[in-house]
Design a binder for these strands. Structure first.
Lengths: 125, 125
DNA sequence: AGGTGATATGCACCTGTATGCATATCGATA
DNA sequence: TATCGATATGCATACAGGTGCATATCACCT
């Protein structure tokens, strides 16, 4: 979520950006982006969920739904083995993350600009 | 809520913009903007709520909370009278709406641009 | 072969938010 | 001054999404 605080005013300007299916169901938004990012770093869904302090149950369910909506896999999962298992991002997932990030950066800029406009409003009062 | 559909791809790009208090509590977002807009046109909170198909109870509660967070009134209410009563927007409310709208227009542009970036992603596939 | 720890998934519960319902207040007009 | 319809507000219920818990599966390592 983006956030800007116009000075001298107790109003904050926020925005949320997300990718969705035709039906409007969310695929990737702020939290899922972070979750995927953490999985990429930790190589584990559980570790990522723990870090984000959300239940593994939810993290898993969210990703499953996202994959279902996208029609392709976001994770390469491995069960069993030395450490019990692990998960990595697929190439598509990595590209999707990059695209989302790109979008977010652009939106941040836009909000920053819009903020100027808002300051005018606050000065009119 | 803004929405753009990158062609040839079943993914939609959405965003939501809202003003909030320091604590993050929402003051004005899409729905409340529309509600206020309708009140402006109809001169009635009830009529606006009906039109939006939300309960009067909720509409009323939402506005009350918004006013509370802003620290000033959004509506000039009148109870009783010929038609039972009516509501109009205060000057501040009108300015706030205009400011919000301005922000939204800017964001729409930004999304439109970001959309180009996203198309690149979809072509990589 | 058994232990271990992450992935996989159903289900019951919990909690915050919306909806509905009930009721009070108010004031111009008939 | 009685009526009517919108504003005002409490409260109980309905509902959705998240959390926790339980349980199964899997495969490397000792």
């Amino acid at each position: 979520m983006g956030r800007v605080k116009p000075s001298k005013f107790e109003i904050f300007l926020n925005y949320k950006l997300w990718l969705s299916s035709v039906t409007g169901e969310g695929i990737i938004e702020e939290d899922r982006y972070e979750l995927l990012q953490l999985i990429k770093e930790r190589g584990s869904l559980k570790a990522a969920a723990d870090e984000m302090k959300i239940s593994y149950r939810k993290a898993w369910g969210d990703l499953k739904k996202a994959e279902e909506l996208l029609g392709y896999e976001l994770l390469v999962r491995q069960r069993g083995g030395k450490d019990g298992g692990q998960s990595q991002l697929t190439d598509k997932a990595i590209k999707l993350l990059a695209a989302y990030h790109e979008l977010h950066v652009k939106m941040d800029d836009a909000v920053e600009n819009a903020y100027e406009e808002f300051k005018k409003f606050t000065s009119i009062k």
